[in-house]
Design a protein around this nucleic acid. Structure first.
Lengths: 268, 268
DNA sequence: CAGTGGTCTAGACCACATG
DNA sequence: ATGTGGTCTAGACCACTGC
């Protein structure tokens, strides 16, 4: 039942150290696409051929190709083959991480609570939060300052629920970390976000120390609880001169150092 | 060496039809996270436990968890376990596909070429395209109209290279399909994109039939050839009232019909 | 029919974390 | 030492395409 001596396989290929085989294959294929060795629209070698070239098992080749699929570099059709995709603007994805990182850039970033009040929901608020009009809600206004300069103005409506001590936590948020994760916190599992370009109104312009009508990003959010019911509706107004979303389109070799101090850790 | 009769396994589990096992597991785990059965910060069952629960092999469980990892729903730490991630604004990703789809929404969408000229590169253009100032470049202006209404204004500088018949193709672009894929085409493998909010200048406002200073999205692009050299620099000015980027954050069950007319086809 | 990608198995060994 | 995730194998069968 031994089938294979334990040392047999490690003797077969001495690549245990360093980057994994699938990553090596991903990088190799990505590089060939980037350099035009495999042309857009052209067919990649079959999995059987790649298996022979790289000396790995079918699953390892498939794993590599799956990654290229996720990245939009290739397309596969069962029974036909794997093909290089040509560039498509629509494939571009922008990560909000960029923006929140820019918020946090700088030594002195803090959140200022401008107002916190309990008021009956307007028709608009009631509709979004799916409440009866007039239901009591919390209205919050915050200003995010970096190096003393206001860069983001945040307004938020939160359902007032005595059974949930969410409000207490809300009021304590005066750090950026709290605003990014505390607002949504460990209690809210999902949300909808949208970004629009807009011109600053009088109040927002004054608070952000910009001329009225200055351009801004508006990041709107609706967070819901485990039952799918909306709990919070709000929007961040971000000075346009302070933020941009950027991304790369097309093949991009990772080139990660094989034995570096890499922490894949994500704090829960 | 036969080890197993060919029919033995298919008798073991009759789930060959319908959705694959890994997808079934992804949906099950996603649902549990969405409903709070697995709480943010909490630990998921170990892979060994899940393997027993779902009756699959280790690789299949790992594939499912890898997908949850990609979607940012869980985090894994070697030696410790798999944990539910709490919501993080920074995790949100916005797909440009939404915007280009909105461009194409409607029956009559077409691209109008306003101007095409050859001119010496200004210092700014030369710098971005890495040319000597004064080198001849193509300057293009286009207007995208939907139902007769101008919604996007596009300006672009393209390097003038007699060895490449790129220009000829450029001038022929009068369809949306051409603008999205033809600009970049099969010849350009990579690009950099960025989005900013801005106010429309006099000319742009006039062309888009908006008041001067109206808000707009500016989608800037630099496309490069196989050698990594920039070939095209331009930007799309999009009326803010026509476009928005939106996305979902958190667990989202696919719920794909098992035996539907699903075409995973991506035209090369 | 042969060729291709898509899924899955039942193990193995490795690297890391904790006690 | 034990338990965890991370990688990998050497096959198998299925579904689809095209001749």
């Amino acid at each position: 039942m031994s089938k294979e001596k334990p040392a047999a396989r490690s003797a077969k290929r001495g690549r245990r150290i360093g980057e994994p085989a699938y990553q090596r294959i991903v990088n190799a294929l990505t590089s060939r696409i980037a350099h035009g060795i495999y042309r857009p629209g052209g067919q990649l070698p079959t999995e059987a051929q790649l298996r022979l070239e790289f000396g790995v098992s079918p699953m390892t080749i498939r794993r590599a190709i799956s990654i290229l699929l996720d990245r939009g570099l290739v397309s596969t059709t069962q029974g036909k083959g794997t093909f290089v995709r040509s560039l498509d603007l629509g494939e571009a994805v922008f990560r909000l991480q960029e923006v929140t990182d820019q918020w946090a850039a700088g030594d002195s970033v803090h959140v200022q609570l401008l107002e916190a009040s309990i008021a009956p929901a307007t028709e608009r608020v009631a509709h979004v939060l799916r409440l009866a009009p007039g239901t009591r809600t919390i209205y919050l206004q915050r200003l995010l300052l970096r190096e003393g300069t206001p860069i983001v103005y945040h307004r938020e409506h939160v359902v007032y629920d005595e059974t949930r001590p969410l409000i207490e936590a809300q009021l304590q948020i005066t750090s950026l970390e709290g605003l990014l994760r505390g607002t949504v916190g460990a209690a809210l599992p999902s949300g909808e976000l949208s970004i629009q370009a807009m011109s600053l109104g009088a109040r927002a312009a004054e608070l952000l120390r910009m001329p009225q009508g200055a351009p801004a990003f508006c990041l709107e959010h609706v967070f819901s609880d485990f039952d799918g019911l909306p709990v919070s509706w709000g929007w961040f107004l971000c000075r346009a001169d302070q933020f941009r979303l950027s991304t790369h389109l097309g093949p991009h070799v990772d080139d990660q150092a094989p034995s570096d101090t890499r922490k894949g850790e994500h704090a829960p």
